[in-house]
Design a protein around this nucleic acid. Structure first.
Lengths: 244, 244
DNA sequence: CATTAAAGTTAGTCTATCCTAACTTGAACT
DNA sequence: AGTTCAAGTTAGGATAGACTAACTTTAATG
């Protein structure tokens, strides 16, 4: 009764009692999902970089996770999530994003700090807590950065959007999502009012990776293409034909 | 830059950068504080029982914690928290109780389930989150079970109260606190409306550990002495002299 | 004051997760 | 086809935290 009879019989925990995963394992699955959109094969080194670990550590871990049926792995060929792994990844993603939405909506957290806090809480929060948080802020469908929140059942909108860097001059668009991992960048985007929901129009794009000039809610400003590539947008049809 | 240069130089982390402790270490310190009220020496076996670990594991851990200056330890003589250990314990206790108060006050958690959730979140929540939670529910001074919440500075009201079992027949009292670890018991106490703030009067106490009859907000009921000992009360002076 | 039971400790293992160093594979390019 | 280099793997270790089994202390008791 000392609680570490882990090498149990893997028969008992049937279809529904989803195996309780450790924090690191959840992080691996989340990272694999993020890099492979769930189905594409993910390279060891990319995973190592994303997780900030040595490639050797990743090799060892993925072998174990493959043994647990969470992913399929072929030496030298990268990994792919199995259905079980994908479900686990989406569960963690839901936790993460609901927590972000809650921190922002209920506790007035600034959007550049919700990611790090959620990164830790996602491994400790119960399903009940996550559900209550979601209910308390009106069952949000995206987190504060515009990332879609998977449903309780594990479905998620995987629409791919254009990045602001890819948008042609003259086009208008609505910001749907921005990358969430760099607080510094988020603070800057916030200052510029480039956030989900904002409408903008690309005025001009300087050649050779030059600055992109645009208007956001009336204000004109210019940003580099590297930053622009982190901003996902949905073109506004009614402004489609550029005037020139 | 791989993040595990733990065997650093213990010089760098000076007076203020409070060493980040692991979950288990926080649990040990909290348990030692709970058993020793911060200053009394705590026995290895008691600690093992409280933490649900084998005594041998505790022996090993306390040796390490003594090395880190969190407690003082003399073989075969039990442990006592040092000032640093005491501070760390109270920090964890504050997190735990603020989280409980928040779950109850802001997310409508039933009082029998806040403990387990807080037990996990207390190791993951940042100071900022805990402070925001405290502010959001009006800087509570106790958790939902009546346990005092340490201040940010690490001060805590350590008043000792009488238990309901010790209260004489005829006396009136106000419930200040109940033990928080047994959900079953909390649900029962909740049904009986025996919760912090409730006023009650002991009508009679049957001898030989017999039932205690009392009235709680008008209703008369009887409980066993074992349950009564888990309920801490503050006698009401104006009802002091029993009528008989 | 010798015995003994309870309390506590040491020794030796185990698992999870990470590391570094050294080796192997695969693919691209002569 | 042979070389080369990046990508990936294995081997060997470390650390934190826990366990069991066996041994030692302390303290109580006749």
């Amino acid at each position: 009764m000392k609680g570490n009879k882990r090498a149990h019989l893997s028969i008992a925990k049937s279809s529904f009692e989803e195996e309780a995963l450790t924090g690191p394992v959840e992080d691996y699955l989340k990272a694999i999902y993020a890099l492979g959109r769930g189905s594409v094969s993910v390279a060891t080194n990319d995973l190592a970089q994303k997780l900030d670990l040595a490639p050797a550590s990743v090799s060892g871990m993925v072998r174990r996770l493959a043994g647990q049926g969470l992913l399929s792995y072929e030496r030298y060929r990268g990994v792919t999530l199995t259905e079980a792994g994908r479900r686990a990844a989406l569960r963690t993603l839901r936790r993460h994003r609901v927590i972000e939405a809650y921190l922002s909506g209920a506790l007035d957290y600034p959007w550049d700090r919700v990611h790090d806090e959620a990164e830790r809480l996602e491994h400790a929060a119960s399903d009940e807590l996550v559900d209550r948080m979601a209910a308390a802020v009106g069952e949000p469908v995206t987190d504060p950065h515009g990332a879609p929140i998977p449903s309780r059942e594990g479905d998620m909108d995987e629409t791919e959007y254009l990045s602001l860097a890819e948008l042609g001059a003259g086009y208008g668009a609505r910001v749907v999502r921005v990358s969430d991992e760099d607080p510094e960048m988020l603070r800057y985007l916030g200052e510029l009012e480039i956030m989900p929901g904002a409408e903008l129009v690309v005025i001009s794009k300087a050649p050779y990776e030059g600055p992109i000039t645009l208007t956001v809610s009336g204000t004109m400003l210019a940003i580099g293409p590297q930053l622009a590539s982190q901003v996902m947008v949905e073109p506004l049809i009614d402004l489609e034909a550029p005037a020139h």
